[in-house]
Amino acid sequence: MCLGVPGQVVEVNGLVASVDFWGVRREVRLDIVDQPVEPGDYILNHVGFAIRKIPAEEIEETLALYEELLQAAESDMMSADVHGELEATAPEGDGHD
């Protein structure tokens, strides 16, 4: 459950932001997002509330994570090294704990 749509903040006015979703704008409330939000930031919108600021670098990080899964497929799947690599990208190593 929980339809979440990422959008980019265009304008912030107190607890209300105007957010662009691929050319459609909507007001999104900032009551429950846990980080300061500024124009240019990406947020995850659910039912008109920002529930998360999405740091741009973490989009890249997710892509890198998937890339590693695929590399693991190409190398020896049972290789302990590969699992070591994956461990490194597991939550403990995320750097935002």
């Binding site: 749509v5 979703f21 691929w22 050319g23 459609v24 909507r26 919108n45």
Partner: peptide, 9 residues
């Protein structure tokens, strides 16, 4: 794009 966006939202 706008229809796709509105539909996603």
């Amino acid at each position: 794009d706008v229809v796709r966006a509105a539909a996603e939202i």
